[in-house]
Write a protein that binds this DNA or RNA. Structure first.
Length: 881
DNA sequence: CACTCCCGCCAATTA
DNA sequence: TAATTGGCGGGAGTG
């Protein structure tokens, strides 16, 4: 067979190709077209391997690469298999490989088959998008190169780009540490901020491109002016430190990659043409170097673009301008970053950021101090990675304050440009460093530690149901502090009922519901969702301490206020938020009181989310308790947070771990919480309530792609709601035990997409009952996490999730039961708020939710299943719009 | 022919 | 000094 191929092989490359080919073939080959028939040659070389061996040998001698070939052969296949297929693509490949392996086609690897993009996909396929925090995956360059059948040089191209986005970090020579996408949103956010600073103005203008160029030029000048000095500074200054550091390395690919990404993030259109990017990226705009330099830059941009494309962040498009059609790339990744803080690990603020910095990267300053409030929260890296310390270059200064600021950096960058003009050479030198700086936040931000509250201006947060679970409390307190509202809420309690306090349910005045969510964007979907599990893991790690961790889920949550009227603030805020949010949907969350994260942490049994919820309830139960909890209060906080900010960090939720729940359950009752989703645009008629309590799993989206959620919920026609303040109560299910019986009663899990929800009907989801028949047999809880990818919520994912939701129509998978509403006896809440009485019953199984079916965007209409739930929906919804 | 971008030389950095 | 990284640009493959 091989031989066969060979013949085809082109004489030139054949040599290497062969080995390579093989490997690749497997993976890729068939995929697209077989197009290139074979070019071939006649080279009779018989088999690829053996016969040719001689040649190979020679070749190998020539190129070091060869050494690995052999191995490669062996390895080939394995590659893909190794892990889960992350992307469909990868999968495809695999399939292809397997299936067809015919050599024919493959044979000659066409150029496409050898493309960096493809290679990158294969590379990415080897690692999970959201690796468990616990596991650290190290990547050996040699190994990967051999496995993938390529020269190391190519791996560097990939890794450098990935490193710029923090998907990997260099641990040591030949060793990289795989982080996956956990930090991606954070990184992007940082880049966005940095980009705004640097290029912001430019891009903002729609002009984008051309304008950009122009502006760019101008801008430099302008901005720089002050900076002008800087250029000098750059050199001179230590800050530049980086400069010192800069090695050539810093210079290019990594930095270029970051800058390139920044351009997208800053661009309104999200489309960046290559030439513009090249111009901007060339520090100097000037032509000086130009042409050749430009060409080189473009080449590199292609390299970067290929990797980014493989990551699903951009796609190639063409822009036709006056001059004609120009190659360009469109950003298809997440646009907003809610922030999340992922994980920070708690510890570290202490950890110095410093260490991290390394390679080119520079540290970022965290907070930008600048106007924005946001802080980047942690740098995830640091905490996570120890590795970094090693990196070769460290940016020099550890903490130098100077660097801190991005401003400086930015300025530097700018300066650079100027400088560059002045000097090219330098680039390499000093300036670069500065440039580099971007993205990383190594530092833990001190202040922000837990969460940042940033209000994002942008703010649209996708709602994520998933988030719910997240809300964690833990930090909440702090949050509270941060949020005025919280306190307020509590206060309000008195009179108001405030949901906050512990209610299991919130009452929503009919009309006023609020949401939590934020809009999604289309893209979000694309991303794989983080599974709850991931979150959980993280959280777990973080443990209570980190509470904030998950929180981020970008989703913003809001509380629903019991009665809108009641709280001034809250309602108002909510409303605002709603407005702000782009999102069509607004969700209201009933409060989630989480109690204390602590508890959770301690308890740790079940899903965190569930736990939280429960806790919350508890709180609710005692209306009085407000104080009890500050913790609890936190909950509210969470909601608040969400307002715009994405940042919620609720500490606890993340902990998806089942354990917690269980314990809690045992301990406490749960109060069900719900999220209410206002019908907004997409939703139009439906109102959803999600129970906060749910296990994370429940909410969780299907892991990766799935848009659908499964959540136990109840749908209520809006109309109905109106009259009633309360929607559901978690009736009695046992919390712990998954109650099958409950199936009905309790909840059905539902899958739905928000979008689908057209109907007016409000939906409630209660966490409580959740037990799904399906659900796990055992307590669903456990099962959930582990199994479902869905569980993981990565912030990003979350978004996506949310997004998804929107899109997807609601479907109800499972039978839903109506919930009983209980009002908590005690619940002070008042009419509005509804309390679930106890909740233990609630849910247990988040996971159970069963299947989350993924719905695709089908329009809402589709409801697939006929589960009882749906029926209800139908019924209830009877008249949607 | 233009667009892509693979390939790998070879210098800068590291070990 | 050897090995690792990675800038860089020739020039091939594609359409």
């Amino acid at each position: 067979e091989n031989i066969f191929d060979r013949s085809r092989m082109a004489p030139k490359t054949p040599i290497k190709n062969e080995p390579i080919d093989l490997s690749k073939q497997k993976g890729c080959t068939p995929e697209r077209n077989p197009i290139t028939p074979v070019k071939i040659i006649d080279r009779p070389q018989p088999d690829p391997w053996t016969p040719t061996a001689n040649l190979k040998i020679l070749v190998s001698a020539a190129s070091p690469d060869m050494r690995d070939r052999e191995k490669k052969k062996e390895l080939f296949r394995p590659i893909e298999n190794s892990e889960q297929s992350d992307t469909p693509d990868s999968i495809q490949y695999d399939i292809v490989d397997d299936g067809t392996v015919d050599e024919f086609e493959k044979q000659r690897p066409s150029r496409k088959q050898k493309s960096l993009g493809l290679l990158c996909q294969k590379f990415l396929a080897r690692y999970p998008n959201y690796p468990l925090s616990t596991e650290k995956t190290t990547i050996s360059l040699d190994e990967v190169a051999s496995i993938l059948g390529v020269e190391r040089r190519r791996i560097y191209d990939i890794v450098n780009v990935l490193e710029s986005l923090h998907l990997v970090s260099r641990v040591a020579k030949n060793q990289y540490c795989w982080h996956g996408r956990h930090h991606l949103s954070q990184t992007l956010k940082m880049l966005q901020e940095a980009g705004e600073m640097q290029y912001g103005e430019l891009m903002t203008s729609q002009h984008k491109e051309q304008d950009l160029e122009c502006k760019f030029g101008e801008r430099k000048k302008e901005t720089i002016p002050d900076s002008q000095d800087r250029p000098l500074l750059d050199f001179s200054e230590p800050d530049c430190i980086s400069a010192s550091a800069n090695s050539r390395k810093d210079k290019s690919l990594r930095i270029m990659s970051q800058k390139f990404v920044m351009l997208f993030l800053v661009s309104k259109t999200k489309i960046v043409t290559l030439d513009i990017a090249a111009k901007i990226l060339i520090e100097e705009t000037q032509d000086t170097v130009d042409h050749s330099k430009f060409k080189t830059k473009v080449r590199r941009l292609y390299d970067i673009a290929n990797v980014l494309t493989s990551l699903g962040l951009i796609k190639k498009v063409h822009v036709t301008e006056e001059r004609g059609r120009k190659p360009a790339f469109k950003w298809i990744g997440p646009v907003e970053f809610p922030e999340k803080t992922d994980e920070l690990r708690g510890h570290s603020p202490t950890s110095d950021p410093l260490p991290g910095t390394q390679r080119g990267a520079c540290v970022q300053y965290q907070t930008s101090a600048t106007g924005k409030q946001r802080f980047t929260c942690h740098t995830s890296f640091n905490s996570t990675q120890p590795c970094e310390a090693n990196r070769r270059k460290v940016s020099s200064e550890p903490n130098s304050p100077r660097q801190e600021r991005q401003d400086e950096n930015c300025s530097k960058m700018i300066n650079l440009a100027t400088v560059c003009r002045q000097k090219r050479e330098e680039d390499t030198g000093s300036a670069k460093n500065s440039n580099i700086t971007l993205p990383f936040s190594l530092l833990p931000v001190p202040g922000d530690s837990d969460f940042c509250v940033n209000p994002l201006p942008q703010a649209v947060f996708p709602v994520v149901q998933a988030d719910v679970p997240n809300f964690s409390l833990p930090v909440g307190i702090s949050n509270q502090a941060s949020h005025p509202s919280t306190p307020a809420a509590s206060e309000t309690e008195n009179g108001k009922s405030t949901l906050v306090p512990n209610q299991p349910f919130l009452c929503f005045p009919s009309s006023s519901l609020f949401m939590l969510c934020r809009g999604l964007q289309e893209n979000n979907l694309s991303e794989p969702l983080p599974t709850a599990g991931d979150l959980g893991n993280r959280s777990a790690e973080a443990q209570a301490a980190i509470p904030p961790t998950v929180c981020q889920k970008r989703s913003s949550h809001r509380w629903s206020l019991p009665s809108a009227p009641v709280d001034d603030e809250a309602p108002a805020a909510k409303k605002q938020t709603l407005e702000h949010s782009d999102l069509p949907l607004s969700l209201v969350v009933a409060k989630k009181p989480s109690e204390s994260p602590k508890a959770e942490s301690s308890s740790g049994s079940e899903c965190s989310a569930a736990v939280h919820l429960e806790t919350n309830r508890l709180d609710l139960s005692s209306p009085a308790a407000p104080e009890a909890a500050n913790k609890e209060s936190t909950k509210p906080l969470a909601y608040q947070e969400q307002e715009k900010q994405s940042q919620n960090k609720d500490p606890d939720e993340p902990p998806t771990e089942n354990e917690h729940i269980s314990k809690e359950n045992a301990n406490q009752h749960f109060q069900p919480q719900y999220l209410y989703v206002q019908p907004t645009a997409g939703l139009s008629s439906f109102n959803f309530l999600f129970s906060a309590n749910q296990a994370p799993g429940a909410i969780s989206l299907a892991a990766n792609q799935l848009p659908s959620l499964s959540v136990p919920c109840v749908m209520v026609p809006s109309a109905a709601l109106t009259p009633f303040p309360v929607v559901c109560s978690p009736s009695f299910t046992n919390p712990l035990s998954p109650v099958p019986d409950g199936s009905f009663s309790a909840v059905a899990s539902t899958n739905f997409n928000m979008s689908s929800l057209a109907s007016t009907t409000p939906v409630f989801i209660s966490t409580t009952a959740v037990v799904t028949p399906k659900v796990s047999p055992a307590s669903s809880v456990d099962s959930q996490q582990p199994a479902h990818p869905a569980l993981h919520l990565s912030p990003v994912l979350t978004r996506s999730c949310s997004a998804v939701k929107l899109d997807s129509p609601v479907s109800m998978g499972h039978p839903v039961t109506l919930l009983k509403l209980q009002q908590p006896s005690s619940a002070p809440l008042t009419p509005k708020s509804i309390r679930p009485a106890h909740h233990e019953a609630f849910f247990k199984t988040p996971g159970s939710l069963g299947d989350p079916v993924a719905w695709k965007k089908n329009e809402g209409n589709q409801t697939r299943s006929a589960s009882s739930v749906q029926r209800r929906l139908e019924i209830s919804s009877t008249s949607p719009d």
